[in-house]
Design a protein around this nucleic acid. Structure first.
Lengths: 340, 340
DNA sequence: CTGAAAGCGCTTACAG
DNA sequence: CTGAAAGCGCTTACAG
């Protein structure tokens, strides 16, 4: 077994007290520079590393952030929504940049959360990430607040609770991308995405979509709105349903790229040309959006910025400061799927 | 500020000693059942959670695994190879299943690794994940071994070092998928993927590919092998180079799905039909492989199994047992990209 | 079955 | 600038 070095070993070698070693390694200004350098050199030579359990116990700070990633309810148990995966990447980077480690935990939205990372002192705060209607878990949020857990969440603002959220301006995104398609001279718009299954994000995108249509004197036909969850398969099925209705449409707006990708497949299999016959747009800008043919025009959610905002705001809360809920704009990414 | 409960608070309420509380909460058989239940009830009522820093410090076990995820060298800083993202998901699930938390850390292959999670006692062991030539970091592996760090890695077996690896049988995968295409009556095979840029995985896939060609009396034309790293863009460029050579080919095997997807785009843009004119196959079976048109035939690496094997083997090492390097088979996933 | 006590390895107020 | 000492909150041998 490896023989563990402690600060006492370093102290012995350096001929100073253990307190001085501790100070030296934390770059305390209290310690003489020469002493500090000598101690640090010895620590390095012996490959000594401060025991985080001991220091966290002492300081009551873990230097760690926990990320609770909620899985899509329909998950087939091995796939994760690529948008959240991308968020995971940016959150990891953002925490590393701040010198924090990241504990990642997958959760079922429905189950009892294992949200006790802060209670167990493994993490200083928690980031909640996942689609879903917050009313489904409002109770949990209330409990987190009651326990004074430091946390921030991704998603739409939660009314009535003092929860710090970072989210995308889904209404604006839905509006903007619909307007883009309108400018491509489309008249008959379908919308694929569940507005009735408890997803405020999707509902906001749909509302923005409808507003854009109205502002441009186009009809909102509720027969052309079909529910779908954020998977390729669900988008595929929704588009098939849409086609089966036999109502004319020349544009499909969707609540997510995954839905759009599935829809594109169904539309093309049915013999339509994209964008010739039907323009299709997504939402998110996942990596795959570049690789479809035609490449998908979409509303990009800036995951890098989102990750940084989430981490920054969480660390503000951890250090006792006040943090504000913030909405990020979605930006239009024009590719080929609704014509040039 | 929240007032932290300790085991002493529980002890006081339960009218027992703190030692008994500790035993009761750990379900020690030493404690009377009635006492145990009462203590546990009180703990639950007060929402008491054991301080992991204290217990980890005491037991010298953290209940945590660290995952070091190496980024592709060419990374644009926000995208992560979807295959590794998928591995990340399965590793997270596998560790949760074993009751371990997962610390995730992104690293540059080239930089000094921040591999001291075990030295700092934040983790009991480490999983290394990323493509790359192990000779590039053999020195690091040697150091990990010297420090008696518990670790396992994803990838090809490392010769000469006692490192536990879990990897895919890339030779067999490359062989199998090439044979599949051969059976589709293709004659002129190109291969896209860097065999000269220090990636043993890619090299093994290429070797399997070549062997399959030889075994079927087909020519291996090194002019039809073009380097590419595992990105859509690199695959796209490689395919354009391939076309520019003006040598006849009717099948493209690739070292990864990402390369295949980029290549498919280039081939189609050049006016060829897939699979009519050119059959294309990938490697990995990332989620996107279902969504291309035509959908990509590929060699699947079972990430769920891989995650479980990595975690299981690491935990074996942590508990002082011996673990063996293991190679998993790749399995053929037939879709549309090389005909029916 | 239970309790008193030692000790895990740090950080930091306190005293000099 | 440095050291001796207390204490973070547990777990577990030891004694009963």
């Amino acid at each position: 077994m490896r023989s563990k070095q402690t600060s006492f070993d370093i102290a012995y070698r350096a001929g100073v007290s253990q307190s001085t070693v501790s100070r030296a390694l934390r770059n305390s200004p209290l310690v003489n520079e020469e002493t500090r350098l000598r101690v640090q050199a010895i620590a390095k030579e012996l490959n000594y590393k401060v025991d985080k359990n001991a220091s966290s116990l002492r300081t009551q700070l873990s230097g760690t952030i926990a990320l609770l990633l909620f899985e899509d309810p329909t998950n087939d148990d091995s796939l994760i929504n690529p948008f959240f995966l991308s968020m995971l990447g940016s959150i990891t980077r953002a925490s590393a940049k701040k010198g924090y480690d990241l504990l990642v935990s997958f959760q079922q939205m429905s189950n009892d959360w294992h949200a006790d990372f802060e209670d167990t002192r493994k993490a200083d705060g928690i980031i909640l990430l996942g689609y879903g209607d917050y009313t489904d878990y409002e109770e949990k949020l209330v409990q987190l607040i009651k326990q004074e857990t430091h946390f921030v969440r991704w998603g739409a603002d939660v009314k009535g609770l003092s929860v710090v959220s970072v989210g995308c301006d889904n209404f604006q995104g839905g509006y903007q991308i619909t307007e883009h398609v309108i400018n491509k001279n489309r008249q008959h718009f379908a919308f694929l995405g569940g507005i009735s299954i408890g997803s405020p994000e999707f509902l906001d995108r749909y509302s923005g979509h409808c507003q854009a249509l109205k502002d441009n004197n186009l009809k909102v036909d509720s027969n052309l709105q079909i529910d779908a969850i954020s998977t390729d398969e669900s988008g595929y099925q929704a588009a098939k349903q849409l086609i089966a209705k036999g109502i004319k449409f020349d544009a499909i707006c969707t609540a997510s790229d995954l839905i759009a990708i599935g829809a594109m497949r169904a539309i093309q299999e049915a013999g339509y040309n994209v964008p010739g016959d039907v323009a299709i747009v997504g939402f998110d800008d996942i990596a795959t959006a570049c690789s479809t043919s035609p490449a998908l025009t979409t509303a990009k959610q800036d995951t890098v910025l989102a990750g940084e905002l989430l981490v920054d705001k969480l660390l503000q809360l951890v250090s006792g400061e006040v943090a504000q809920t913030q909405l990020m704009p979605a930006t239009l990414v024009v590719r080929k799927s609704c014509g040039s």
